[in-house]
Design a protein around this nucleic acid. Structure first.
Length: 414
DNA sequence: TCTGGGGTCCTAGGACCC
DNA sequence: TCTGGGGTCCTAGGACCC
């Protein structure tokens, strides 16, 4: 791995909120918050005007309104963000094919090889900012550094509309003043642990004996040491080289906590159908089904998985497995959230099962998928879902920033 | 009438096999 | 004259990312 790479990290500022403000001039310059459509939703993104009042991602709507009484709530439109993001990625690709889409609003670019065409990395950054602003009315913060770890750190330093460069000879000074918790990979818990050792800055972390870190954190300890030194050899991985997805799942926080088994089953069927449909669309089979439950107290989670002897991707099979797991559980409280996930995946071309009954079932499922693809989720579905359909409960449809522009990761593809 | 959703990776212990 | 050891798969839970 060359030690002379030039890596850029681009972070769209308040992406969802910016897209909404761009699309509706009445929202510009105002405190807005993008939320989900479900009853128990949170702030997905807020505009900088709203952030000035202390409105933050993850906050409950009532809390946000308390902070900012004239806050404007906008229900998120996933397609809009997906579309805009894909367009922006295309724009980035004009500068280098080495674009790693890190989330719906973040990307890494390896511009090492692009420099012969441009006078400097900063020049590329300015061109990209201008293009993105011109076409989408969105600002972004850009970090430029010798690797991804530092580029991401840099992009965070000036927001919004920032440009921060960390040159190789400046790395030491920067790390000495930046808190360790600002590094991507060091979360709340780890930061707290590090503080117990007196480690506050990245510099502290880099100088700390790696043996102790290894003992306390295992493999992560080694990595923490490297991070403290600003070392990161991980390459920028373009989409076509990215690993295959390892699991597919959906979960939903229910409108109210429930205890009734029949009611739980209804939601499990709905979730199984969502998971199965996504798996089938990308010809993925899975052997392991995980049922997740969050209880009414919010803090207690249960995750139980079952690995089957064969691979499945039909909603009915997923559902039956999930119900099987549910029946091994004694529910301790009313249920707040239900989740179904398919993992242990196998990717293969579509092949119809051999036996007649199996084949008929598979063809029926394919036909249903086709109708749903054409007319939207849950146009056609299993019988017991229909009541839910009438009640208008189709899940929250809040897009996850784990979104990717193509393929199975894109939760919202139609 | 608090507190979303989709992912990945790591750990530690147990089963099972050779 | 006690109880090897390595590999693989599975499970539950936790930390982290956006």
């Amino acid at each position: 791995m060359s030690s002379n790479r030039i890596i850029m990290h681009i972070d769209m500022n308040a992406f969802f909120a910016s897209v909404e403000q761009q699309g509706n001039p009445e929202l510009r310059g105002k405190p807005i918050a993008v939320i989900g459509s479900a009853k128990r939703t949170v702030i997905t993104t807020s505009s900088y005007e709203a952030r000035a009042y202390g409105v933050k991602t993850g906050m409950a709507t009532w809390e946000a309104r308390q902070k900012c009484p004239h806050l404007i709530f906008v229900i998120g439109d996933n397609r809009k963000y997906t579309y805009t993001s894909a367009q922006i990625v295309k724009l980035m690709m004009q500068f280098t094919p080495l674009v790693e889409v890190f989330s719906i609003d973040e990307a890494f670019l390896d511009i090492t090889g692009s420099l012969s065409l441009y006078s400097s990395p900063e020049r590329i950054a300015h061109l990209l900012k201008a293009e993105i602003r011109h076409h989408f009315g969105i600002t972004c913060s850009i970090g430029i550094a010798p690797n991804k770890l530092l580029a991401k750190l840099a992009s965070d330093m000036q927001k919004p509309d920032g440009l921060t460069v960390i040159r190789p000879d400046e790395v030491g000074q920067v790390l000495d003043r930046v808190p360790a918790k600002d590094l991507c990979g060091i979360g709340r818990k780890t930061a707290r642990q590090l503080a117990l050792y007196g480690i506050k800055t990245c510099g502290d972390l880099g100088r700390f004996p790696v043996g102790i870190l290894r003992k306390r954190f295992g493999i992560i300890g080694e990595r923490l040491h490297q991070m403290g030194l600003g070392i990161d050899d991980s390459p920028v991985i373009p989409a076509e080289q990215a690993d295959e997805v390892k699991s597919v799942g959906h979960s939903m926080t229910l409108e109210r906590d429930i205890e009734d088994r029949e009611e739980i089953l209804k939601f499990l069927l709905q979730l199984s159908e969502m998971v199965g449909r996504r798996a089938r669309r990308y010809s993925v089979w899975g052997k392991t089904v995980t049922l997740s439950i969050r209880y009414a107290d919010f803090d207690t989670w249960v995750g139980r998985q079952e690995t089957l002897p064969s691979f499945i991707n039909q909603s009915g099979d997923i559902y039956r497995t999930a119900v099987g797991i549910l029946d091994t559980l004694v529910l301790m409280q009313p249920v707040r959230l239900l989740g179904v996930r398919l993992s242990n995946l196998r990717y293969e071309s579509n092949q119809l099962p051999l036996f007649h009954e199996e084949r008929k079932k598979a063809m029926l499922v394919d036909a249903m998928d086709e109708v749903n693809d054409r007319y939207g989720d849950f146009s056609v579905t299993f019988g017991s879902l229909l009541d839910e359909e009438k009640a208008g409960n189709k899940g929250s449809h809040v897009i996850s920033p784990a979104w990717r522009p193509n393929g199975i990761r894109n939760v919202d593809v139609k």
